[in-house]
Nucleic acid binder design. Structure first.
Length: 421
DNA sequence: ACCAAGACTTGGATTAAAGGAA
DNA sequence: TTCCTTTAATCCAAGTCTTGGT
């Protein structure tokens, strides 16, 4: 692997990564972090390979070496931004008449809106989700809202709904997709490529950049992870009227689909997103942003690694300082010091506060509660052992037993008496 | 100084594509 | 070719961290 290696004295000047595009650069950085580097295999053989190689070479020549340029220091992220707007999810196509839905053993023809939501459920039928109580309850509640009043009065019990025929129809569909001929597959691929060419790029400051997610998220049922209180709720369809477009004043504003208009068009160069909308499950904002290969992402990523690198210059000081704070008379300082120690020693996530009832109950270092740790003066021949057992990100269990310094242990005892930590 | 909203990163799951053996 | 396995790309929820308003 080719790389110029005088990293030790990096002064933040981008001389290093000359021969790599940013994607590779990122990989390279990851390899430095990883214990085992991945093999770099790009065997391209035959005539096709020759063409491919030439194409790649050409692209490389045209590549912009953003890491050799000056960076903004204020909050300005760009001066020119133009794009084609998002690609919306395809409209709902009703299932053919021979695909049946049954309620209480009797066949029912659903109205298009109710049917669409029913298909979302049908598509997930053999997923464990659909057996969960919370999921079913949330789904049922949102589904009813989409029904006509006749349907509402007819359908009163989810357990009497039979989605199996719908489900097998979709299974057959995806099977059929796999069995398509070469030409059919090729046609789809080309059509896809056309979309990418048209909507997959934007111009930011004189450079054509790849957009990461130019397609709006399609409607469906929300799949929260862990035991999420909102799983199964209907993720509604996003229309142009929900969309905020961000681009520069002197750019060509993308037209909304005919008969529609955007919620808003703004020109905010202090942010990096091109399109945003508010999602209906948590009320949070979703964005369309650029690819990791773009300047805006690559620069930030690079900065991150440089920051990490600078850590070694001050890590000793930090460690001494938190050890000192274990004795502080301020309880807050002690808590911070112990938390920092765990983050340092165990690489725990920081752990921000979360809104109760809105999301699954998960914690990180700073949001650990008394019930998440146990203290053992002695365990398996070791002194001052802390046992961690808590649901972390995505409700994944973190379980670990670690011997700690006596001071840390004493502090934890103190915190737990006072119901903090 | 506080806190909610906003912006952006991370990483697991899902799907698509590529590779490889039969 | 066909079928299975591995890898890569995409999707999107769940985090972290920053910002701006009070």
């Amino acid at each position: 692997m080719k790389r110029s290696r005088d990293d030790e004295d990096s002064d933040y000047k981008p001389k290093k990564i000359k021969t790599e595009d940013s994607k590779k650069a990122k990989k390279r950085k990851q390899e430095e972090v990883d214990v085992k580097p991945k093999k770099n295999k790009n065997k391209v053989k035959g005539q096709e390979g020759e063409v491919k190689r030439k194409k790649v070479k050409k692209e490389e020549e045209e590549k912009w070496k953003w890491w050799e340029e000056e960076r903004h220091t204020d909050g300005v992220k760009w001066t020119f931004l133009e794009h084609k707007g998002p690609v919306f999810a395809p409209p709902y196509e009703p299932v053919p008449d021979n695909v049946k839905f049954y309620y209480d053993g009797k066949q029912v023809k659903l109205s298009p809106k109710a049917e669409e939501v029913a298909t979302f459920f049908a598509k997930m039928l053999d997923h464990e989700y659909t057996t969960k109580d919370v999921f079913r309850k949330n789904f049922y509640k949102d589904w009813k809202k989409e029904m006509t009043s006749e349907e509402q009065s007819l359908i009163t019990n989810l357990s009497k709904c039979d989605f199996t025929h719908m489900s097998s129809y979709f299974k057959a569909q995806s099977e059929a997709r796999k069995q398509m001929t070469k030409q059919e597959k090729q046609k789809i691929k080309e059509e896809n490529e056309r979309l990418v060419q048209e909507y997959g790029y934007c111009v930011m400051d004189n450079h054509k950049e790849r957009i990461a997610n130019f397609r709006i998220e399609p409607p469906g049922l929300f799949r929260g992870r862990g035991n999420h209180p909102k799983m199964g709720k209907l993720k509604r369809r996003i229309n142009p009227e929900n969309i905020i477009i961000n681009c520069s004043k002197d750019s060509k504003v993308p037209p909304a689909p005919s008969g529609h208009k955007w919620k808003e068009v703004r020109h905010d160069n202090k942010v990096t997103w091109l399109v945003s909308w508010t999602e209906n499950i948590q009320g949070s904002i979703k964005y369309i942003m650029l690819n990791p290969s773009s300047r805006i992402k690559g620069e930030k990523d690079w900065q991150k690694y440089e920051t990490a690198r600078r850590l070694k210059l001050c890590v000793d000081k930090i460690r001494n300082s938190y050890k000192e704070d274990w004795k502080s008379k301020e309880m807050k300082a002690r808590q911070r010091a112990v938390a920092l120690y765990f983050i340092d020693k165990l690489a725990l996530r920081a752990g921000n506060e979360k809104e109760e009832g809105e999301t699954a109950d998960t914690v990180g270092c700073c949001s650990l509660r008394v019930e998440h740790i146990k203290l053992f003066l002695e365990m398996d021949g070791q002194e001052y052992v802390v046992e961690f057992d808590f649901p972390g990100k995505d409700s994944i269990r973190y379980y670990n037993k670690v011997p700690v310094e006596k001071r840390v242990f004493k502090n934890l005892q103190l915190f737990m008496e006072k119901q903090t930590t």
